[in-house]
Simulated assay, not measured.
Amino acid sequence: MNVVLITIISLGALGSLSAIILFFVAQKFKVFEDPRIDQVEEVLPAANCGGCGFPGCRAFAEALVKADDISDLNCPVGGADTMSAAAGILGKEVTAAAPMVAVLRCNGTCDNRPKTSNYDGASSCTIASTLYGGETGCSFGCFGLGECVDACDFDAMYMDEKTGLPVIIEDNCVSCGACVTACPKDIIELRKKGPKSRRIYVSCVNKDKGAPAKKACSAACIGCGKCVKTCPFDAITLENNLAYIDYEKCKLCRKCVDVCPTNAITELNFPPKKPKVEKAETAE
């Protein structure tokens, strides 16, 4: 009986001593977490989309708290209101970032880009891209299997059965970049929405020379350089037979649209141009 009692007392004492030791060890190595992280996380949209460049809203909140300057940090889903709320909690200043939106840089519709073969494999753009160049003569264009649509958590995209291309619903797009990451062809880009949601960009990523590009798709950029020469703001560059419009420099004058021989340049949300009125000849 004494042996049992001594054993119980010894184990109890040993357990108590271990608990005390663990308590002091935990206190010594305790990691302090700024309570403002929780406060900032509460004003974030909890989308956990990764559009901010961090794995989730919690990680983004931690980055905001730790950063001395948060002007380069942005929550695309919450936008300016969310960033202002976070800045208010932290007592920091933030510059409102220009709203962005996803755009499709491919105009290879079924009419513009006829099929040369039929794919009968897994319904995945990523898998298809590792197997072959596509069902048409253009190896740069959209596969049309909708992996970008599946990646979007905000119902901002759908596949158009008529064109075979994804359509972006501007009002739903939060510019999280999930579709950009999902596309193995790199034909989706985040660009500034622009004033009155007006944008101009080259809807093509084909880097082939003019003749092969035009043969593969009637709306391909053929690298003629007319848009570069026409642009008065040096907003367009031509590299590897492909034109690109810098949205930071573009003033939306639309001169490039008028001179593009293949209609590879897309203009969105502009009013229709007024027809030019020819001057009547003066009678002699």
Rank of each mutant, 00 (worst) to 15 (best):
V3Y: 10
V3E: 07
V4H: 11
L5R: 05
I9L: 06
A13P: 10
L14N: 15
S16L: 11
I20Y: 05
I21Y: 13
I21H: 10
L22N: 09
F24T: 09
F24L: 11
Q27C: 11
K28F: 13
F29N: 10
E33G: 02
D34L: 10
I37G: 02
V40A: 00
E42D: 10
A46K: 14
A47I: 01
N48V: 14
F60G: 02
L64Y: 09
D69R: 04
D69T: 02
I70F: 10
C75N: 14
P76N: 06
V77Y: 15
G78P: 04
D81I: 13
S84I: 06
A85C: 07
I89V: 05
E93C: 10
E93W: 11
A96M: 03
P99Q: 11
A102D: 06
A102V: 01
V103N: 10
D111T: 05
T116G: 03
N118Y: 08
N118P: 15
Y119A: 08
Y119S: 04
Y119T: 02
D120M: 05
I127R: 12
S129G: 14
F140S: 07
G141A: 07
G141T: 02
L145F: 04
V149A: 12
D153Q: 11
D153F: 06
F154M: 06
F154I: 08
Y158S: 14
Y158P: 08
K162D: 08
K162W: 15
L165E: 04
N172M: 03
C173T: 11
T181A: 11
D186V: 02
K196G: 05
R199F: 01
R199S: 06
V202W: 00
V202F: 00
V205Q: 05
N206M: 04
S218F: 13
A220I: 01
G223V: 11
C227L: 02
T230W: 04
N240G: 09
L242G: 02
A243P: 00
E248W: 01
V257W: 15
D258H: 11
C260V: 01
T262Q: 02
A264N: 09
A264G: 07
I265L: 04
L268E: 07
N269G: 05
K274G: 11
K276M: 07
K276G: 10
E281L: 15
T282G: 06
A283Q: 07
A283I: 05
E284W: 15
E284C: 05
